[in-house]
Amino acid sequence: MTFKAFAVAVSLALMTGLACGSARAEPQVNATYAVYIKGFHVLNAKTSYQLQPWGYGGSTQIKPAGLISWFVTMDVTSHVQGQFIPDGNVQPVLFDSGGISRGKNRHVRLEFSNDTPKVVDLQPPETDREPIPADLLPHTVDTLSGMAHLLHSLATTGKCDGSQVIFDGLRLTQMVVHGPVMVDIPQGQDEAYSGQAMRCDFVGRQVAGFIKDSPNREKLAAPQPGAVWFRKIDGLGIVPVRIEFNHPKLGHVMVVMQHAVAP
């Protein structure tokens, strides 16, 4: 998986804070996170989101941190807009992600109609990937909306059991989630919060959109476990305070909240 794809994966994790199922509009929330790979602080991430009774909207920005910023140029910003529908699911409207990654300006824009995403821009084109069959795209959601669905379910039903197929413009990933369980938040990386939190466990598995003849196909298609710790914070609602997941190439990834405010 490329750094751009990894940035999208981190965005997916961070935007679990998109939706809480409240009947009233919530304030805009701004939060910052540190991203660690194998124990090293490599990325900084900012997320901003606001809730309405009818839907959600938000953005994330990811940049290198520490020594890696001397060698890697990356500034990726993602935006999402969507609606909540009566059955408890989400209905994405727009997903847009772009910026500098791997030395180039990159951009993907998805627009949704009739519960189906359409790639309206993909720069630069990635012709070395296996095409995704059109019949697999209906009922898929973008990365950020997929995790909005997770938190919406957690807040409205008290559970995060379910599955969703995620489409990021290049790949399809099957996400299966279970929980929550009440546990202590792990400590050790300057966490902003400690004590009890709701942990939802998940498994992600890429099912389509592989690079042609990739020697890593088996590794990329293998199930990748992870977990998200949610905590209810006064004035903010339920937010993700810690995320851990296994990356098929980079190994163990940890995302830790450093600060969150409502302006």
Rank of each mutant, 00 (worst) to 15 (best):
A65W: 02
A25Y: 12
L18H: 07
V10N: 03
G66M: 06
K46F: 05
T60Q: 07
G17T: 05
A23K: 14
S48E: 13
S48Y: 12
T60D: 05
T73L: 11
Y36P: 03
E26L: 14
A45Y: 01
L18S: 04
N30E: 11
A13H: 06
L14W: 02
I62M: 00
L14E: 02
V72M: 14
Y33F: 15
A45P: 07
I37T: 06
A9T: 01
V8A: 09
P64S: 10
L18Q: 03
L67M: 06
Q61K: 07
Q50F: 11
A23Q: 15
R24C: 07
S11I: 00
Q52L: 13
W54M: 14
S59N: 14
W54C: 14
W54K: 15
V72A: 05
Q50E: 14
A34D: 15
G55M: 10
F71C: 10
A65F: 02
I62P: 00
F6I: 01
H41P: 05
T32F: 10
V29S: 04
S69P: 06
Y36F: 15
W54Y: 13
A7K: 00
F71M: 08
W70K: 15
L12Q: 08
N30G: 12
S48M: 13
C20L: 09
S59G: 01
L43R: 02
P64N: 10
G21M: 04
A19L: 05
V35N: 00
K38H: 09
Q28F: 08
S48P: 11
Y56F: 12
S59V: 03
K38T: 06
L51H: 13
A13P: 04
V29K: 07
G39L: 12
L43E: 02
V8Q: 04
G58H: 06
P53G: 09
G17F: 00
T32W: 04
G55K: 01
Q52A: 13
V10R: 01
F40H: 11
L12A: 10
Y36W: 07
G66I: 02
S11W: 01
S69M: 04
A65E: 08
S11G: 08
N44L: 10
A9P: 04
G17S: 11
F6V: 03
T47M: 12
V72Y: 11
A25H: 14
K46R: 11
L12N: 10
N44T: 09
Y49R: 07
G58C: 09
F71W: 09
V35M: 00
F71Q: 08
Y33L: 10
V8I: 09
Y33T: 12
V72D: 03
F71G: 10
G55V: 07
L18P: 02
L67R: 05
Y33D: 04
L67E: 08
V42D: 01
A34F: 06
S11E: 08
G17P: 03
A19S: 15
K46M: 09
L18T: 08
T16F: 01
Y36K: 04
Q61R: 15
